[in-house]
Design a protein around this nucleic acid. Sequence first.
DNA 1: TTGAAAGCGTTACCAG
DNA 2: CTGGTAACGCTTTCAA
Lengths: 365, 365
Amino acid sequence: MVRPDMTGNCGRPAVPDTGRMHPLATMVERTKIKDIARVAGVSTATVSRALGGSARVTEATRERVHEAARKLNYRRNVRARNLRIQKSMAVLLVVRNMSNPFYLDIFKGAEAIARAAGYVVLMGNTEDDSAREIEYFDMLRDGQADGMILMTGNLPVDHQVLDGETGMAPIVVALEAIENCSLPLVEIDNHAASKAAVQHLLDLGHRRIGHIAGPVPEVLGQLRLDGFRAAMAEAGLSAPPSHEAVGDYSIQSGRRCCRAIFASPEPPTALFVANDEMAFGAIGELRDMGLRVPQDISVIGFDDLFVSDSFSPPLTTIRQPSVEIGQKTMTVLLDILDGRLQSRDICQMPTRLVVRGSTAPCRTG
Amino acid sequence: MVRPDMTGNCGRPAVPDTGRMHPLATMVERTKIKDIARVAGVSTATVSRALGGSARVTEATRERVHEAARKLNYRRNVRARNLRIQKSMAVLLVVRNMSNPFYLDIFKGAEAIARAAGYVVLMGNTEDDSAREIEYFDMLRDGQADGMILMTGNLPVDHQVLDGETGMAPIVVALEAIENCSLPLVEIDNHAASKAAVQHLLDLGHRRIGHIAGPVPEVLGQLRLDGFRAAMAEAGLSAPPSHEAVGDYSIQSGRRCCRAIFASPEPPTALFVANDEMAFGAIGELRDMGLRVPQDISVIGFDDLFVSDSFSPPLTTIRQPSVEIGQKTMTVLLDILDGRLQSRDICQMPTRLVVRGSTAPCRTG
DNA sequence: TTGAAAGCGTTACCAG
DNA sequence: CTGGTAACGCTTTCAA
C-alpha cells in the first residue's frame, strides 16, 4: 500500500501493523485524521475540532492542522463521520411518478438548497405502489436519510403511528396535501388558483364552462374541482355533470375526457383543465374534432410546463413557482433538521395566471 | 432511554405499538445486532452471518436468529455497515441540466435498477458549472457514492489523471460521449439516427433541407450535424451555411434559429432539428411567420418527448429509449461495482423513426 | 486549549 | 459451524 508521503521520512504508514499488507503497490490508501495528527503534531481530537470549525482551538494550531490537511490532500471520511454523529446527511425526495415533468424544477430547487447545506438528495419514485412507499419510509426509519420530502399525496403508515413515534425523522409534505395529517406542508392554494382560472374564462364572457379534473377524491383533484365549482357558483352558474370529467393527468386522459364532454348535448365554450398535460390532450382532441382553439373553444390549463409557452396555441395556464417550491420545501426540512423550526408550518406559495393564446372572448351566446 | 428488554419474558418487542407507549421523553433506541445475539443465544458474529445470508450457519441457528430479529423488529444499521464494508451503497447520477425533461425517464429506469440491487441514487445537477462538476466528483473520491453515472458530456478532471488513479470509483458515461475518454458508455448512434431522420425527409421528396443543431463542437451536437451533412452528401446534396444554425436545445433558441434560417434567400422546405424542444420553438416560429407545418414546411425532431405526440401538429421525431437507457446504464455500473464486468463496454441503444404529422411530401420543386 | 480513550453498530479475521 | 475480538475513521466526553 502506498500512503501519501509526508515530508521526508517522518511517517510510518498509518496502519503499519496490518499483517496482510501485500506489496502490490497499487491501491492508494486515503489519508486519515490520524495522519494529520502526526504531521501537525497534535492529537486526533484536536484535528477533528480544528477541521470541524470548533471554537476550542487556538488559531495557531487550527492553521497548522489545516496546513497539514491540505498538504496530505485530506478529505474526511463521510461514512465514518455519519456513523459517529448518527446522521446520514441525506434527505429523501419521494415522488409518485418520476415521469411527471413538473417535478424537474422542484428537484432542481430542492437539490440546490440541500447541497448548499451539505446534504445529499436521494431520489425515490413510488409509482403509486404502496409497497414502494413503505420501502422508502423504512429507509427513513433505518436512518438512510435524515428526513424526507413527500410528494405522493399519501402516507404509507397510519398518521397516529407517525405522530406517536418518537424520534421519527422529519417529513415535509409538498404539492399534494395529505388528509388528516399534521405534517409541515408546502403547497399552493389550489382552490383559489382554480377559481382564478375559471374567473379568467368568466371574464372573457364564457358561461358554459367545462372541467377536466384530476383523480378524485384525491386531495389535489378534489381541490381544483371544488375551486371550479365555487367560481361557477359565485357567478350564479353551475356546470352539468356532463361538463365535468375525471382524468388522471395524462395526455391520453385529457383526450378521452374532452371527447366525453363534447359528446354532451350542449357542449361548453371553454374548458378549465386541471393540468397542462391533459390540456394538451384536450386541445389535440378538439383539433381532431375540427374545433379551433381559441376561436371556437377556450382552454386553460394548470402548472405552466416548459412547453406550454410554445404549444400551439400557446397555453393559457396557472403558473406554479416550481423551483421556489422545491427550495422552500427543502429549506423547511433543513430548518427542522437543524432545530431551527419546531412548530408545524404550512406554507402557501403564490401562483399566477399566465394569459396566452389558448383563451379568447366568448363569441357564441 | 429505553432499551429493548429481553430479560426473562422476551415477549416484549423492541419497538412495540409505539403510538401508545410512555409518551414522555422516552426515545426508543434501535435494536442492534447485540440484542439479537442475546435473545437468540448466539454471538454477534453469528447473527451477522445469519442475517447476511452466509453459508457458514446451520439452518437451525439461522432460523433462530431470524426469529429473534423479527421479534425484536430489527433493522440493520446501514451507516455502521457502510463504514465497515467500505461502501456507501449509493450511486451518483449527474446531469448537466436538471430542467431537461428528457432525463426523467432515464432517472426512472436507473433508479428502479439501483433500488432492486440495494443501492440508492443520489442526484446531481451541474448546470454546466465546472465547480459543481468537481464537487460531485469529489463526492466519489470521498466515498459518498460507490459509482457515478455521468450525463454531462464532459469530465471535470484530466482523463490521464482518471485513468492513472487506481482505486477510483467506477464511472459510466451515458447519452453524451466524452472526447478522449475511455470510460464505459451507453449511448445511441447519433450519427446514424440523424441520417435516418434526414433520409425520411429525402424520401418525402425534400431537397432543400435545413438543420438546427445543438451546441458545437460539443460531441452530441456535432454528431447530429455530421449525420445531417452525411445524409445530404449521400443524396448528392449539400445545405448552404445559411440553412444551418446552432442552438442550445432550448425552445427559445429553436425559434431564433428558425427565424435565421428562413431569413435566407431560398429557405428550405424541410427542417431537421437536433431535439424536440427546439423543434417546438421552430414550429411556433413558422406559425408566427404564417407558414403551415407540414403543408408548407416539414419538421422532424429528435428525442420523442412525452408531449411530442400531442403537439400540434404531432411531431415526427427520432425516439430514444430513455427508460431503457437509464436501466442499461445503471446495469453496467452495478456490473462493474460487483465485479461482473471488467472490460470497457460501449453500448448503443436502438433508436426509431416515429412518423407523425409534422412531415409531409414536398410540394414545391 | 489539548489529549486519551470510549464508543457509533457492523463485519471479518482468526481460533476453537 | 461458532465465538471472541479487532478494526472501519471519526466525534466527543472527561481529565489534565
